[in-house]
Design a protein around this nucleic acid. Sequence first.
DNA 1: ACGGCCGTACATACTTGGTATACATATTGA
DNA 2: TCAATATGTATACCAAGTATGTACGGCCGT
Lengths: 170, 170
Amino acid sequence: MSIRHAILGLLANGPRHGYDLRATYQDDLVRAGKLNIGQVYTTLDRLERDGFVEHERVVGAEGRDKKVYALTAHGRAELDRWIAGPSPMPLDLRNEVFLKIAIARRIEGVDPQDVIERERRACFERLHEVTQARARAQGVAVEDELLLDLAVLRLKAFLKWLDHCEEKLS
Amino acid sequence: MSIRHAILGLLANGPRHGYDLRATYQDDLVRAGKLNIGQVYTTLDRLERDGFVEHERVVGAEGRDKKVYALTAHGRAELDRWIAGPSPMPLDLRNEVFLKIAIARRIEGVDPQDVIERERRACFERLHEVTQARARAQGVAVEDELLLDLAVLRLKAFLKWLDHCEEKLS
DNA sequence: ACGGCCGTACATACTTGGTATACATATTGA
DNA sequence: TCAATATGTATACCAAGTATGTACGGCCGT
């Protein structure tokens, strides 16, 4: 997923500059997420190129000048369109583990069941980590909980699929 | 996921040229997947740059010459390492629907429950499509079934999460 | 026969998403 | 005082993926 719409969304509540957008993203919008500052500026450039935002140079009280970005009408329309429309639900063809299993079946000397077993173990460990993080988030911030709940559900579904693979390929 | 390891995997059973790799990928390895031919050649270039494959110019019987790629020992080692090691299980921070909900909660005039409801409907439709595709694949090819089973499990997990969001945010 | 389309085959330009790093100044704290 | 940290922007670079260009040959219909 790209960060375009996150920026448009943050700008909907008023103009901000790049550094500020990143801080707000990390500290408020997606608290578990990190955002590379370089990506913020290149994304802002592209959004401006496409007419979604425009910037104004502002000389700060500290002497540093900032580029403060604001949504254009076009940008606001794009944001509304994005929010109102459904998100793509990719089928995850090109799934790495599926590919690994498929290749293992076509190579001599590699047992696909071993591959499945190793992936299962890794998935379990990950689930354990995430479950602990989920417990720590409990009651702190509802959105942090939701994001971790999603991760848990996804990992459980994947484990179920691995079991299913093992059975069907045996 | 990148296509690097798919190509290494296909080359493990003997040398092939670019066009052939793409055909084999689409017709045998991941039958539901499409592979852009341009990506095959650029990936082969990078694999060669990194010493994983090497090529030989072969003049075909038809007069067209091909570049036939083969795994090097280094490439075979990389393939084995990849198969033996676990795949990354990304937490899917930057999930688009989560972002949409989070932004909706921060903007006036947008009801996050509406967002959830719309995503649910889209997800249901997708699930319906995939379920039909799954029924068509039944008994035809076990790997096609597995890939579609994964898609179904994923979509069901996501629907469950949307219900969960609705409840927690109400 | 020939003109168009399709299959085979490779190459390149371009876009996007993402990381790392460089650069500059102000504040803060040991 | 001097080093680390915070604020702020910019750029280079890389990988993944898409679209397009360029050949050549075979097949098919009129």
